Amino acid sequence: MAAAAALVTVGAGLGLRAVATGDVAKYGGDALYTLLVLTLVVLLAPRTPPARAAGVALAVSWAVELLQLTGLPAELSARSTAARLVLGSTFNAPDLFWYVIGAAAGWLVLRAPARRRPAR
Rank of each mutant, 00 (worst) to 15 (best):
M1D: 15
T9E: 13
V10N: 03
G11L: 12
G11D: 00
A12K: 00
A12T: 06
A12M: 08
G15K: 08
L16D: 00
A18Y: 08
V19G: 09
T21S: 15
A25G: 11
K26D: 12
Y27K: 06
Y27I: 09
G28T: 08
D30G: 04
L32C: 12
L35F: 13
L36C: 13
T39R: 09
L43D: 05
L43R: 08
A45W: 15
P46M: 00
P49R: 13
P49M: 10
P49Q: 12
P50W: 01
R52F: 02
L58C: 01
V60P: 03
S61Y: 01
S61C: 07
E65W: 01
L66A: 14
L69I: 02
T70F: 11
L72F: 11
L72D: 06
E75S: 15
L76C: 14
S77W: 10
R79D: 14
L85Q: 09
L87H: 03
F91R: 00
F91E: 04
F91H: 00
N92A: 14
D95R: 01
F97G: 15
W98N: 12
A105I: 11
W107V: 00
L108C: 12
R111P: 00
A112E: 03
P113V: 04
P113A: 02
P113G: 01
R120S: 15
R120N: 11
